[in-house]
């Protein structure tokens, strides 16, 4: 496994550079707004003294590069400033909402992986039959469907017409069912596509031919030899989908009133709570970068055939 160490270091440093860039953009976000950032943060109703106090407090009277260094310093201490709306620390509010988003994202990823791999395998083992066409068509529909519309349709069907599940909120244990299915819909479709093509590729290999030739039952060939090898790229896709999943979470949380970071982001945009918007965007970017890094490293560890270019 020579070479994996430097690879991890290289990948880690690329991630750090990207995150530094992200922090610079997020830092500049509020500064490029027309008008006085101190006024923006203080809100339109604040007095001149209040604005001046915020300007000094935030160091906005100092040169830009000094401000950025301060900003980075605060970031490293986990200090994202205070909300312009509630005056609570941004970090505390985000930490309060993070578990709900994490629960939703993880549940959806598991759903996407289980159903996606199952359906993808079925499509590959029945390639060019009715089963395959049916699954492929459903997948195409899944990719083309707006998640927020699917969410509303699920509410109409399961909450209003059938009254099986709650329409919104997170009070009941079953509240997560509809949001999780909604959010998983897009990822499921991608996982099916990836599993299908990866399985078809693996099923063509010589060791599958060998396994069949030595008389192994087909079920065993698929489960023992094919799926395990076909899954490596699929797991990468599930991981790399995480970013899109968070994007979808913003919409899904809005539809279902799910009390996560996505809903908080939309509320903060409407109330022009820029410190909160800044903080949430940073946390989202950090999560995406961290998951991508872990996926890449896991991929390198799992599959010794890849070379660390």
């Amino acid at each position: 496994m020579a070479g994996i160490g430097p690879y991890i270091v290289r990948r880690l440093s690329a991630t750090l550079v990207a995150l530094l860039g992200v922090s610079l953009i997020v830092f500049l976000m509020v500064r490029v707004l027309p008008g006085d950032p101190a006024r923006v943060i203080a809100g339109l109703l604040a007095s001149e003294e209040e604005v001046a106090r915020i300007r000094t407090q935030l160091g906005l009277d100092k040169p830009l590069y000094v401000q950025y260094i301060h900003f980075l310093g605060s970031l490293l201490r986990g200090d994202l400033g205070r909300s312009a709306r509630t005056f609570e620390p941004v970090t505390r509010e985000i930490m309060h909402r993070l578990p709900a988003t994490a629960l939703l994202a993880v549940t959806s990823s598991i759903l996407a992986a289980v159903f996606g791999i199952g359906a993808g395998t079925l499509a590959a083992t029945h390639a060019n039959t009715f089963v395959d066409y049916f699954i492929s068509t459903t997948v195409l529909f899944g990719i083309s469907m707006p998640v927020y519309w699917l969410g509303i349709m699920l509410i109409v069907l399961f909450a209003i017409k059938l009254q099986w599940l709650p329409a919104a909120g997170a009070e009941e244990p079953t509240s997560i069912v509809l949001p999780a299915i909604t959010l998983a819909s897009f990822s499921v479709a991608l996982v099916v596509r990836m599993t299908r093509s990866s399985m078809l590729e693996v099923l063509r290999r010589d060791y599958i031919l060998t396994a069949r030739a030595k008389g192994l039952p087909e079920r065993r060939v698929i489960h023992r030899h094919a799926i395990r090898n076909a899954l490596i790229p699929v797991i990468t896709v599930v991981g790399l989908q995480f970013g899109n999943l968070l994007g979808g979470a913003v919409l899904t949380e809005s539809v279902f009133g799910w009390p996560g970071m996505g809903l908080l982001l939309v509320e903060s945009i409407f109330s022009r709570d820029y410190p909160m918007v800044q903080g949430i965007v940073l946390v989202f970017a950090f999560l995406v970068a961290a998951v991508n890094l872990l996926v890449d490293i896991a991929y390198a560890l799992v599959d010794p055939r890849i070379h660390y270019a």
Binding site: L33, G243, L246, L265, I269
Partner: peptide, 21 residues
Amino acid sequence: RLVDIMLSFPSFLLALSLVAL
């Protein structure tokens, strides 16, 4: 590096942040 930075923002969040600004 620029692409890496842009890809750190999920595309919908990037669009959302830009509209917010």
